[in-house]
Simulated scan of single mutants.
Amino acid sequence: MIAPETLSAVQQRFPSVPGYLSACTSGLPAHSTTAAMRSFIDEWSTGRMDAHSISAQVEECRALFASLVGVAAERVAVGTQASQFASVVATAVPDNGEVLCVTGDFASLTHPFELEQHRGVTVRYVALEALAAEVRPETSLVAWSHVQSASGAVSDAAAICAAAAAVGALTCVDLTQAVGWLPVAAGDFDITICHAYKWLCAPRGSAFMTVRAGLDDALRPVAAGWYSADDPWSSCYAGHTPLAAGAGRFDLSPAWPVIAGTVAALETFAAIAAIDPALAHTHALDLANATREGLGYTAGDSAIVTWRDADGADLAAMTRAGIVASGRAGNARVSFHLWNTPDDVAQLMTALGR
């Protein structure tokens, strides 16, 4: 049980937007994130932007994300898009290797592997619930989203990792729909990828990858640039471009306007985790299961609730009622995060005529 005063204090960090049920599309910025973004614009517009200070903030992002997912900071790469990191992971698949993926998974994760067909790489798709059982000796890499975008289904990560380890396959899990509400340990996987603009409520343009120690040389930094060194400011020009000793070699040049906001977002979630590491998970799941009960479904384990809505009628009804939701793959989709309240569930039930 979450103490009401604790939950209230956490919710006050975010704007009140009744009916916003779309963290799985884009998180709401905490007040500190909005202030940081505005401060950057003010500094930029008055000629006071300091690129070296932004580099220091990138290191803050690296350390904060590392603490949230339980790995050392040197195991974290900082970039801008999940697909760019997936393209790096694709280089670890040997010629003629097999990548095992989930049917209907998000394209930013799967598409980079499909583009390795010129090397004989095969991408095989199976249902999420069959993923562990479908790992076979010729599987080189298992790549999947821990929480599925279209359905909200949560994977049995332990079983998948065990099956992959049994045949010597690498594991790459996309945590974009997980980190921020679902406790996760990145060290359980060989590689993780996470864009921070959803459940971590950062501005779009900040993404992270974790790489298990000992795997750095198995991946090729296909987008290596001036930021791929331990000290980017000393490797700006040809003739001295060393790769960073750790996962920083996979860094991408940061999108300066979003870094301050990302620091503020990650600081917010670090502070909430210090109060209660399970708070976001408990709160989101309580509201999601209240919604499932209202829809006549059994309780589930995901903060994302989906149901069939092939003609979009339910999504249209929610929109007319002022609810921000989404439709994916023929499903209506809502999600619950820290700012949501039981009033949001009641508004949703009314909109759907339940």
Rank of each mutant, 00 (worst) to 15 (best):
P137F: 09
E138M: 03
E138W: 01
E138N: 14
E138L: 09
E138A: 14
T139S: 13
T139Q: 11
S140W: 10
S140R: 13
S140F: 07
S140P: 12
S140T: 14
S140Y: 09
L141K: 11
L141A: 08
L141M: 15
V142Q: 05
V142T: 12
V142R: 08
V142F: 07
V142H: 09
A143N: 06
W144V: 03
W144Q: 02
W144Y: 15
W144M: 00
W144T: 04
W144F: 15
S145L: 01
H146T: 13
H146Y: 12
H146A: 12
V147M: 04
V147S: 10
V147H: 02
Q148M: 13
Q148Y: 00
S149E: 05
S149V: 03
S149L: 11
S149M: 06
S149H: 14
A150E: 11
A150W: 05
G152K: 06
G152P: 08
A153N: 07
V154R: 10
V154E: 05
S155Y: 00
S155P: 00
S155D: 09
D156G: 02
D156H: 07
A157K: 02
A157N: 13
A158F: 01
A158E: 15
A159M: 01
I160S: 07
I160F: 06
I160P: 05
I160D: 07
I160H: 11
I160L: 06
C161W: 00
C161A: 15
C161T: 13
C161F: 00
C161R: 15
A162P: 01
A162F: 00
A162I: 00
A162N: 10
A163V: 06
A163Y: 03
A163H: 06
A163P: 13
A164S: 13
A164V: 13
A165E: 15
A165L: 03
A165H: 15
A165W: 02
A166W: 00
A166I: 00
A166P: 00
A166C: 01
V167A: 13
G168N: 09
G168Y: 08
G168T: 10
G168H: 08
G168L: 05
G168K: 11
L170H: 09
L170I: 11
L170V: 10
L170F: 14
C172S: 05
C172M: 10
C172D: 06
C172H: 08
C172F: 05
V173Y: 05
V173M: 12
V173A: 15
D174Y: 09
D174I: 06
D174S: 08
D174V: 05
L175R: 03
L175Q: 03
L175K: 04
L175H: 07
T176M: 07
T176Q: 02
T176R: 07
T176A: 06
Q177C: 05
Q177F: 11
A178D: 01
V179N: 07
V179M: 07
V179P: 10
G180D: 01
G180A: 06
W181S: 09
W181D: 02
L182M: 15
L182C: 10
P183W: 05
P183S: 09
P183N: 08
V184Q: 02
V184L: 04
G187P: 04
G187V: 10
G187N: 12
G187L: 12
D188N: 14
F189Q: 08
F189G: 08
